[in-house]
Simulated scan of single mutants.
Amino acid sequence: MDIDRDLWERPEHTHRDMETLYKPARTFVQDVWFRFWRRPTAILGLILIILLMVFAVAGPFFTSHRYSDQDLAFVNIPPYFTAQEYGGRYFYVSQNLKLIEVNGEGKLIANIKSQKDDGQKKLIGFDAGGISLGIDYAQRPPALVDGQGVVVSRPHFFWNKTYLLGTDNLGRDLLTRLMYGARISLVVAFIAAFVNLVIGILFGGISGLFGGYLDLVMMRIVDIISTIPLTLYVILIMVFLNSGFLSIIIALSSVYWVNMARIVRGQILALKEQEFILAARTIGTSLGDILTRHLIPNAIGPIIVTATMLIPTAIFVEAFMSFIGLGVSAPMASWGTMCNDAIETFRISAYQLFIPSVAICIAMFAFNFVGDGLRDALDLKKGL
């Protein structure tokens, strides 16, 4: 095949152009983001965190229920249920042997009051606006029967349009309580992580920079705190301060900084013997400037990763404290208190425990995924 050389022309360039990299250089932040973006699990975790924050902050503005509102007429109603059709109307038999009328869209209309309870026949009678119905609880599961005792078996499946995630044992909306519980967990986690970040950086930075007897004394303090299980230490503090939202923050802030202090101290010990630190000391830079302007900025990678890992730990501890009754006070909603409330009805309404447990798992996985992604992205020794 002949090529017309007139259609081609030789590019003009100098010797300097041949040694120039035309791809624009990335900054450190851009390089970290590039590495982070290449981790699918890290991106997934970041998306989940954003959705969780939107769910917690904006979600309560789009619901007509409050976390403390109780409707004893609709107790333990699941998010998905089976209703029986009779006379063109739909009736749901709850686990508490209540008869609830539902419209054709899945919205709860009313809790029909019982007329009589025949203990011998194990039959509860109802008058649904001129229609005689009953619940035969001698059968398993309890069945809806008409006035002649014939079982009504025309099932229709509905999503609960009134309470999208169902209700608890006091008739409270689980979706709304889940939103407020996310607020509590995220606020506690972020405040505790920030306080631990500040205390850990200052404590570990001073210990590693000055060394000597000061380092020895400060690290022995850390060792003494570490000998006591951190969860037990938090429980003791909260018992002393009484349970509550503020007590959780104080307890977590006073304990969980020890790991941060150890990591910062290790980074400072490794960096303070570097040439740029020796040069800073030679020209008379103060120790405070060396710590704040040279050492801590160069150790920011492990610090950020550790702070990210502290958040899921704080979420779990807050949920655990609330679960055992040392967290937020009723009727305030928390994922831990929701799990605690669901224990009583676990056998008949397992969804009440499943929903907040899944929320806790999602939050912890999301922050751990982001922490793992940041750890890999900030490690420049790893390849792309």
Rank of each mutant, 00 (worst) to 15 (best):
A25M: 03
D6F: 11
L21V: 09
W8F: 15
W33Y: 07
R35F: 02
M18V: 13
R16P: 00
E19T: 05
D6W: 02
R16Q: 13
R10I: 10
E9Y: 12
A25Y: 03
L7H: 11
E19R: 06
M18R: 14
F34M: 11
Y22S: 06
D6P: 00
R35E: 01
P11H: 02
F34V: 09
V29A: 14
R16K: 11
F34P: 00
H15R: 09
D31P: 00
D31F: 08
W8Q: 01
F28R: 12
R10W: 03
R35D: 00
M18E: 15
L21K: 06
E9W: 02
F28A: 14
E19W: 02
R10V: 12
R16S: 11
M18N: 11
W33K: 02
H13V: 08
P11G: 06
P11W: 04
D17I: 06
F28H: 09
V29P: 00
R26I: 10
T27H: 00
T14H: 01
M18C: 03
R16F: 08
K23R: 11
M18K: 15
K23N: 04
W33I: 14
H13Y: 15
H13L: 15
L21P: 01
R16G: 00
H15C: 01
A25R: 12
K23E: 13
R35C: 04
L21D: 15
R10A: 07
D6V: 14
E12G: 05
T14L: 01
R5T: 10
R26W: 09
R16A: 10
R5L: 15
T27N: 10
L7S: 07
M18W: 03
R10T: 14
W33L: 14
Y22N: 07
P11V: 09
V29Q: 07
R5G: 04
R26T: 11
D6N: 15
V32C: 06
K23I: 15
R10F: 03
W33H: 01
W8V: 07
T20I: 09
D6I: 12
W8T: 02
R10E: 14
D31R: 10
H13K: 10
P24H: 02
D6A: 15
T20S: 06
L21S: 07
P24D: 10
